[in-house]
Nucleic acid binder design. Structure first.
Lengths: 340, 340
DNA sequence: CCGAGCTGCTGAACCGGATAAGTAAAATTG
DNA sequence: CAATTTTACTTATCCGGTTCAGCAGCTCGG
């Protein structure tokens, strides 16, 4: 049994292909009686319009693209992306849009993917994540006139629409909180240094520490993986100026750091306070529960998706700020045991 | 500047559209000289074939679909899917195939997605995950003649090709190991009861416990979330016949369980041994590190993808077994403190 | 040296929808 | 009631590829 086409419906209804097309798309040009008859037949034989045929007649692909550039090892257990995708999906499926996903190895591969998707008209637009310093992708999407929304910013995004969080405010709030508790040696386990948001957080951290008289022991860069988070923690805790508090750039590293502290015989929060950037249920479930900077990541993804769809529809969209991450104090932060 | 088409190339090269098509697709029918000239022009003007036009002429969509039916809350932080997707992606992108992803709320929505994808010819086939008892999706893909590979089984999959792990063997190995350590009260925190693999694990667990004289305290069903894993653990540890070892159906619940044990003042592994089904870096990073049943999930995904592509290509594919999960003993399992 | 077979191309049909243009009949208008 | 507009269609064309049939011109065997 072949897949039904409008020609089949036309034959069954005794009308022309054109009439069927009008009827199915709610265009005027057919009587209400005929429309109903055609719709009934379409329903009965299980008709679905061939997306390619539609696309060929100039329709949109009704698909947006998302290329993620992280090694499988990191992606696998970092909740951020999955939550982001959930949010994006929720928005898209409510509007009959599909999501095309591709995991890429490096920047060149990602750019190739954009070119191909656009050239083959597979997607109407893309979400660009993990904005880097001097990111070549901005120029590519601009050149291609490929509708895009950057998830990140506000620095480093020229005129491309973007949705962003004010990470600086979140970092400052955290440092102020830790300083108020009495911490004077705060370290930071940061993510990839060439990501814009890492840079933004770093500069906010430096500024807040200086202002509050915190001798921040060290900032250690990582690739966001738990392994590197653990290694960075070992280094910090074995060093000369052992910090009394550590801020981790994601939840996975924070949990790994907690494990290291326990392994080294330090009590949390007595000997070491821990704060995680980004909250996941695990932060609540480990013992002690981790103080975290929470944000609604699915909502963030949904916002980005909504914006991309607006951009695709040709509406003027600019920069939109999502709610800042909120500090949720839990059991992993307290006054330090030893006053400096 | 309009998107270039083969007609543009034909005009520039002074040949017909047909010749260009032959040249680009490596068909015979053009001389080597002409082919090279055409390819050069195509390269220069940045030509990409319009995927819809191709698809309309009967070509494949070069896309496979994956619909996931888990609430965002669970998906977000369960590493399994992201790792699976990474593996699927690795295989697909190496072969120029794309992945269409959709997160759905329930079985009906998932079936609708399959129907639509197939009707609109958006995908060439689908991966079916989370096989349930009496799963209606099997009948749907069979009816539609939609090429599909089930990730799961071997029970409950009629004649649909599938890739599977022998979870029973893994569970038995684990129970034998715990029994050999001296455990006689082993509990199990299980996943969703209507998933086939939960059922398979449950029956293997029961069998092994009976054979080895283990009075398994209790099996508690959950939705795989950390919250429920924590709650189940509290229930087990507060009950009358407190288990000396617990097997968790995923890593997230195992980590949550570890947190609960610590919160209740029990030492791990002294008072309680913990085993996680599925390993993630976090299992190695918490303290104590968790004994886990490891399997290479990206490889599992890649295998499934490879199989689906073979099925789409019309090759006869049947059931394929992926390597069984291996027990990796770490610090969370030991002899129980108190001999029963 | 002539027909058969091959090479290298052209022209046109085709895939399945969308849509502009054309047309006959019905409804409205003056 | 004739003229005009509207309704309800049909016909034809287009989108951008693929592919089949056709057709020169060349090569080659007998």
């Amino acid at each position: 049994m072949k897949r039904p086409t409008i020609a089949d419906i036309a034959a069954l209804a005794g009308v022309s292909k054109g009439a069927v097309s009008y009827a199915l798309n709610g265009q005027r040009g057919v009587s209400e009686t005929t429309r109903r008859r055609i719709l009934a037949i379409a329903e009965e034989i299980g008709f679905n319009p061939h997306s390619a045929a539609r696309a060929l007649s100039g329709a949109a692909a009704d698909t947006i693209g998302l290329a993620l550039r992280r090694p499988a090892r990191v992606l696998g257990f970092e909740p951020f992306y999955m939550e982001l995708i959930s949010g994006v999906e929720a928005e898209l499926s409510a509007r009959g849009q599909a999501l095309m996903l591709q995991i890429v190895a490096d920047a060149d591969a990602e750019i190739d993917v954009y070119r191909r998707w656009w050239g083959e008209r597979r997607v109407d637009g893309v979400l660009v994540c993990d904005l880097r310093v001097g990111d070549p992708r901005i120029a590519v999407v601009t050149d291609l006139r490929l509708p895009a929304v950057v998830v990140g910013g506000p620095d480093g995004v020229d005129d491309v629409p973007h949705v962003w969080n004010d990470d600086a405010v979140a970092v400052i709030e955290t440092v102020e909180y830790l300083a108020a508790l009495g911490h004077r040696q705060i370290a930071r386990v940061a993510g990839l240094p060439d990501l814009w948001h890492t840079r933004i957080r770093a500069s906010a951290f430096r500024g807040a520490c200086e202002r509050l008289g915190v001798r921040h022991a060290l900032t250690v860069g990582t690739d966001y993986s738990g392994e590197e988070g653990a290694r960075a923690t070992r280094r910090l805790l074995s060093g000369e100026h052992r910090p009394t508090a550590v801020i981790y750039d994601n939840d996975v590293m924070a949990i790994a750091g907690l494990g290291v502290a326990q392994e080294m015989g330090l009590t949390v929060p007595g000997d070491l306070s821990i704060v995680a950037f980004d909250d996941s249920p695990l932060c609540r479930l480990v013992h002690p529960a981790l103080t975290a900077l929470t944000r609604d990541i699915p909502a963030y993804g949904a916002l980005a998706a909504r914006h991309l769809l607006a951009a695709i529809a040709g509406q003027p969209v600019g920069s939109v700020e999502a709610p800042t991450a909120k500090l949720v104090p839990r059991a992993s932060t307290a006054r330090p045991n030893t006053a400096t």
